[in-house]
Nucleic acid binder design. Structure first.
Lengths: 109, 109
DNA sequence: TTGACATGCAACCATATGGTTGCATGATAT
DNA sequence: ATATCATGCAACCATATGGTTGCATGTCAA
């Protein structure tokens, strides 16, 4: 079984999907049709990408008649930060000194 | 051609690779052999994962005799935050209100 | 010097992934 | 009512990905 956080990382791994999030970030609540304009792939391909983003809870959808509106959900991105990136930030300085020390020793040969 | 940031996102997409980063975070400068202990796959598989992490500049290596030491490089993770996550954080409240408003309208049917 | 040890390289395999095409379904507008 | 529009579903395909096995290379230690 995939963890929630794994689904989010996987969803973010594709540049097209990140671009879709960017487009929703610029203009929230777009329909599938709108998100397909000026795209270099078929509607079905984009619908699949949106499906993955939805499964990762990065996008939430609302039906309005026959249109499906797509909204950005910023919560999982925030969780990636808090549960994963943040801990590396805390010890960032130590990791960097480890690294530079190792690289210096390398040059002492 | 893959962008730098894309390589980092791709590298972070695999749970085994994130686990390797976690292990280096806990104990920096480990050899390949050490990183293979208690792992459920072959040395070669782990070496491939480390190769991707190195290509994404998330890990930097130093040779010491016949051993290869692996160090965590926190810089790309920080860049992911600054160049990508941060902008979503800034408009987080707006995105959330967009979302809840849309969900409320959905219930007004 | 020779054997053991740490790692690299390459071929190969199964499955996942990203994309396509074709058709089905349900809502809207005339 | 019916044609059109927005979307979903399913089969299919090529390539990417994650893993394996087998062998080669270079370093250390006896």
């Amino acid at each position: 079984m995939k963890t929630d956080i794994d689904k989010v990382f996987k969803a973010l791994a594709d540049p097209h999907r990140r671009q879709l999030l960017d487009r929703l970030h610029a203009d929230n609540g777009q329909t599938l049709g709108e998100l397909c304009l000026d795209a270099s792939m078929t509607r079905q391909a984009i619908a699949k990408h949106l499906g993955l983003l939805e499964a990762a809870n990065l996008v939430v959808t609302v039906w309005r008649g026959r249109e499906k509106l797509h909204y950005l959900n910023p919560v999982p991105i925030q969780e990636i930060y808090e549960r994963w990136i943040h801990k590396y930030e805390r010890h960032r300085v130590r990791a960097l000194t480890d690294l530079t020390k190792a690289l210096e020793e390398k040059c002492d040969d």
